[in-house]
Design a protein around this nucleic acid. Structure first.
Lengths: 340, 340
DNA sequence: CACGTTTTGGCAATCGGTTGTCATGTGTCG
DNA sequence: CGACACATGACAACCGATTGCCAAAACGTG
């Protein structure tokens, strides 16, 4: 049909196109689509019909610019290739999508600098941020949280909403498990020095060990990668312990491989406990005894907490801290202590 | 200092703040920052100093709105939790960051509908799109590529730039390997029906089998998850083959687990070949013989091809197709055919 | 029927940049 | 020394939506 409008080009439709088609003002279209109550139901239906007909998709940039809300949430993880984060990412992705948000996933490469600059960057282009296993200092996190809605995962800083995974308590379970199997000298293969969860876990472990009269020693730090497992295994063997609790499954799996290479039997000569129950923990050789937790759920909870900050509609203050339970999953990598 | 300007608030600095500080127009600031040559070097330096002093960070929304360029690239994968994509994602992330782009990672949940709507969505908020293992039809992909710069990975559609992983040729290698071990009846455990790589691989495999006088049969389809491995293993056992080539490592690993449960020895009773050499393929039990390729590099190449589309500065036409080599990595899951 | 109240919808400013146009100012050359 | 090209920077129009403000319309009531 011959139209007098400038161009019904192939270009995506805007509210102006809709307005022209309906013979109303662009602002009315905007209202009809975002605050339906402020507009006559019949006008609204005409507008909705026109929007559908034109395959209208709102321009998120423009919306962000004028409203200040971007509809995006940044999710920062230290290492995308660490399977631990798969489930977390999956959880955040699902929950964010359900709420109509877009996930901006960034790998901070275990670097506090990348993390800091990303947080700063995201302050403009995201409505909120979820930071997993932050490498930032408490102060930096606190400052960031003051400027942007932010939720941490596995990082406990007073004043910053957080989802915590209760590995410390699972650590005691792991210790009990090993002690009951007759192990008396146990090593903790520590994670990065900047990792708060590693520190918390070691504290819990050494306290629990004292109560039970077991001896624990701390080795490392080790990078949370399977490659570090070789060094960890060698350190463990050299230290003479009969059982190890690793910072995470990656290190534990790496140890398994190295010990096998060295002809040291797991669990006959050495027992290994991992942490996180990542992809692979159930099919490595031997299958790994590890501390499991509902990671995907942690991601969902983190999103919920963040959204509660963004839309403080609920009267009661939103939960600002959530602790995910963790339990020990016993598989084949732990067994009775070798006879001396 | 007492300033006459409206507000030196805590709010992030804009080019207007810089302009006011330097006593020039905002447009000059814009030019100084984006087209430095168009501005006097001394003015420019003053502006740059002011920008640094004010910790100026450009607002990406505003920039996107007026320039049309968002500085973001969408990366679509069917399943974030599939380890195959870790390396790909890592590759795209690194290369994109190096080029100053932001990665928008989306999990399309193996759904063509989600994929289609995401592509449409991203058309506005990203400068280009990389689609891994697309579930869309050739026509849909072609149409999308016409509207948005787009590169596919592992999906060959004429007219759409693509990075292909040459698993078909590796499939022949795998077949040779198995035939030389004495296997005569071999099953291919197919992937999703919508997966083009699965189809291509089957074609290559059946052709190669004909040349070599081996018998191959196709079982499935199976979902690319370890859970499907159980069904795959049972189907393989029932079919009476002595060796299987699986669509990917997830299925292969699942088969390993199931066969172990059923007391069938790998590789004594059954040989298994996977594909992708994902995380876990080297430490499962037994370690998996699999077809390996430089996935991270594939991600980087995909980004390069996309960026070449975005900035067609090079005179010669950009490469529109790139094939990544694949080779067979022999580990413990394959061995001589059992004596009949 | 007049008046007050509530809906309803239009106008225009605004978000923070980019970019085309144009008026200067500077330098070079014949 | 005049003419001309070019470098420079100001102005203003946009990009596509949101939103405060106000006027017109619709409604109800006495």
């Amino acid at each position: 049909m011959a139209s007098t409008r400038p161009a019904a080009a192939d270009r995506p439709a805007t509210i102006h196109d809709i307005a022209a088609l309906c013979g109303v003002a662009a602002s009315t279209v905007s209202r009809a689509l975002s605050t339906p109550d402020r507009v006559n139901i019949r006008t609204r239906q005409r507008i909705e019909a026109a929007a559908a007909q034109l395959h209208y998709i709102p321009n998120s940039q423009a919306r962000a610019l004028s409203s200040g809300r971007t509809g995006a949430v940044g999710v920062l993880v230290p290492d995308i290739t660490n399977p631990f984060y798969f489930d977390l990412i999956r959880g955040t992705q699902l929950q964010l999508k359900a709420a109509g948000y877009t996930q901006l996933l960034v790998d901070t490469e275990e670097s506090d600098e990348v993390e800091a600059s990303t947080v700063e960057q995201l302050r403009k282009s995201a409505d909120g941020i979820i930071v997993a296993a932050s490498r930032l200092s408490d102060d930096a996190l606190l400052a960031a949280a003051a400027k942007t809605p932010l939720v941490t995962v596995n990082r406990d800083v007073p004043g910053v909403p957080a989802v915590l995974i209760d590995t410390p308590s699972a650590t005691s379970q792991a210790l009990d498990h090993l002690v009951s199997l007759g192990h008396a000298r146990i090593a903790y293969m520590a994670g990065p020095v900047t990792s708060q969860s590693s520190a918390r876990r070691w504290t819990a472990l050494s306290e629990a060990a004292e109560e039970r009269g077991a001896e624990v020693l701390r080795l490392g730090p080790f990078a949370p990668k399977t490659q570090s497992g070789a060094a960890a295994a060698d350190a463990a063997v050299h230290s003479g312990v009969t059982a190890c609790i690793a910072f995470n499954d990656l290190i534990a799996i790496g140890m398994l491989q190295r010990l096998r290479e060295r002809g040291i039997s797991v669990p006959l000569d050495m027992s290994i406990v991992g942490c996180d129950d990542i992809f692979g923990a159930d099919f490595c050789n031997p299958p790994l005894t590890t501390m499991a937790s509902p990671i995907e759920q942690a991601g969902r909870v983190a999103v919920s907490m963040l959204l509660a900050q963004l839309n403080p509609l609920a009267v009661g203050g939103a939960r600002t801290r959530s602790v995910m339970p963790t339990h020990l999953t016993v598989r084949g990598s732990t067994g009775p202590a070798p006879l001396t």
